[in-house]
């Protein structure tokens, strides 16, 4: 049996995977797509794809939502949350088995690093590669922030992990975004708080989103500065006046360093966030190894979905050469 491409994704709300699969179909390249939801129909462990049949794995998504709803006999907000966490852990325990059964070098991105990516560690690695990053610290007191404000006009606070969406019992939804702290709102900060990541605030000319794919950087500039509403974080989408998104080419030296960083992390694909300050300096912010690239591909007409399909197909034709 010839080895094939394995795509790990989810069954709903995953246009990017659909798009890549359609390119694979069009190019006549066979592939196996396993959605996390499929695990709810498995009969035994033998149903999981095995190492021998797989040449390359693109790990895109885990699952959209469990296809079956589980609830407590007696509804309780607190316990319901614990149950949700437990089921997520149970699912991850099964899903991540593949990380160990399929050879690590077959994955476009090392799956264990990808699932446990540490923002602080990535920033340190970036600096090691000679990439400039905003001054970053983790602090626990207002006094520490006050001291930072002596050196930096403004600082921002953002999670060490990922932003979350909160829901209250009434169904209200709240999203967590980057916030700015300066002399005028410092008094709102508690004297002592949970260890929090703070960063020097960089006045940006524009942001850059780079999709890194197997040694190449496909970059897009995002102009949001003239739009007060999105000054801190362009995820505060503004539909009336959307941000301008245009193709961009990073300096070769920076592309090279980003390539070094990706290699250190064993990633062949990923979305990289950068910022350009008013003086034109580049600042590295973070990497999202499974980051969206449709939002770069379409506005810049890059055909990244086709490029991903071609990279996957290269991996199987390469395998063929070895085994012939």
């Amino acid at each position: 049996m010839s080895q094939q491409i394995l795509i790990l994704s989810q069954s709903h709300l995953e246009g990017t995977t659909d798009h890549v699969c359609q390119w694979l179909g069009h190019l006549g390249i066979p592939y196996l797509r396993m959605n996390g939801e499929d695990l709810f129909d498995m009969q035994h462990l033998g149903d999981l794809p095995g190492n021998d049949e797989i040449a390359v794995v693109w790990y895109r998504r885990k699952i959209s939502s469990f296809p079956v709803k589980y609830s407590l006999k007696q509804a309780d907000f607190q316990t319901q949350y614990t149950l949700k966490r437990f089921l997520a852990d149970e699912f991850n325990g099964l899903h991540s088995l593949l990380f160990y059964t399929i050879d690590r070098q077959k994955w476009l991105n090392d799956p264990i690093t990808e699932d446990n990516l540490n923002k602080l560690h990535v920033l340190a690695l970036a600096r090691k590669c000679g990439i400039s990053t905003p001054f970053t610290e983790v602090v626990t007191t207002r006094a520490a922030i006050a001291q930072l404000l002596e050196n930096y006009h403004e600082i921002i606070v953002k999670p060490v992990s990922e932003c979350i969406f909160l829901e209250d019992t009434a169904g209200g939804q709240y999203k967590m975004l980057t916030k700015t702290i300066h002399q005028n709102n410092l008094q709102l900060v508690p004297e002592k708080f949970f260890p929090s990541l703070v960063q020097e605030k960089i006045t940006k000319k524009f942001e850059i989103r780079t999709f890194y794919l197997d040694g190449e950087c496909h970059s897009m500039a995002i102009f949001s500065q003239n739009n007060r509403k999105t000054k801190d974080d362009f995820r505060n989408y503004d539909n009336q006046r959307p941000n301008r998104t245009v193709p961009y080419k990073l300096p070769a030296a920076l592309e090279f360093k980003l390539g070094q960083l990706m290699k250190l992390l064993c990633f062949r694909t990923g979305s990289i966030d950068l910022m350009v300050d008013m003086q034109g300096n580049y600042h590295f912010l973070e990497i999202n190894p499974e980051g969206q690239f449709g939002m770069v591909s379409y506005p810049c007409n890059y055909y990244l979905e086709r490029k991903v399909a071609q990279l996957l197909s290269k991996s199987i034709s390469h395998e063929k050469e070895i085994y012939q």
């Binding site: 359609q22 390119w23 245009v246 193709p247 007409n301 055909y303 086709r306």
Partner: peptide, 11 residues
Amino acid sequence: LTPLDLSWDRY
């Protein structure tokens, strides 16, 4: 700020 690539393709 590079020019837009005007190529076209569909799957």
